[in-house]
Design a protein around this nucleic acid. Sequence first.
DNA 1: AAATGACACAACCGCCGATGA
DNA 2: ATCATCGGCGGTTGTGTCATT
Length: 317
Amino acid sequence: MSTSKSVSSSSEDDNELRRGPWTLEEDNLLSQYISSHGEGRWNLLAKRSGLKRTGKSCRLRWLNYLKPDVKRGNLTPQEQLIILELHSKWGNRWSKIAQNLPGRTDNEIKNYWRTRIQKQARHLKIDTDSREFQELVRRFWMPRLLQKAKESSSSAMSIQNQATPMPFDGVSQHSTVGTIPSHSHTPWQGPCMNEAGPTYMDQHEQNSDSEHNNGSCISLSESANFPKVPQHFGRTTITQYHALNNNDFGTFTYDGYNVSNNVYEMDNFKTPTTRVAEDAQYPTGDCQMVGSNWVNSDFACNMWNMDELWQFSKLQK
DNA sequence: AAATGACACAACCGCCGATGA
DNA sequence: ATCATCGGCGGTTGTGTCATT
């Protein structure tokens, strides 16, 4: 990218399109135009708004950054779990995966995958397309994310009980631009929720379960009765996602064992295959994090104990 | 304090399918 | 049926920031 050059605005460049980082003035111009004219017709928007940007660039800026319901900040363990799950199912279908994470953009998810997941895989010299990697995700990373999700939900509960507002995802903040979306009245509602109803399922699955889906936003009290929608991932079946109402992350099944409310039974993850890894010391109870406070630290850096991960990956080979 | 490297993420690019003239 | 335009998607790159040396 030749940003430094292209961003310049000498007189000879005045009629040229701008590139590179957006300025505050451009953001304001775009936001104001969209607030009065609405989204869409991006090329026309680009011309009429006075922005020296392509329609594509305007669209991208709006969708990935300026749009009021764009969530900022680190992905929560729940969101990471969903990404891992859906990526295993759909591959690099970032926009499709993003549809199941309200407020998250395909770009963000893509970046997360490349900078965090692929990085870990590289360190382990594992191809992310390989079966080996899938196993690692399923047997190592997902259980940990589950654990963290549960921990975070219980910590959120204690914090909520103190009537102290706090973003669920620790360091993240909601967008400073615009308003917090209506579905954000709870920090994270789980993958099934958005204003149009459950979104974790793809459309086909929703339709197949339509008797449970009235098409409206599922209230938190209703969420406990959210229909079971099996999501198959290898031998892993997520039988039920529901909202974090009452800080209940929901019920997951790994190899047929429930991981429910306050009990996280790591033994349930042991299968004839993974029992071999007993000496690899699955974490019990507390998670083995490099950092002491994962909620407030950089999740990407502290998520995995690389030694442990390495050991695990060796055992899988 | 400066140099260097690693990282995260915003932004761009090229391709492709949908749509309308 | 053809062509042009637009919007969306996935891949890639540039840049700012922070940590380390």
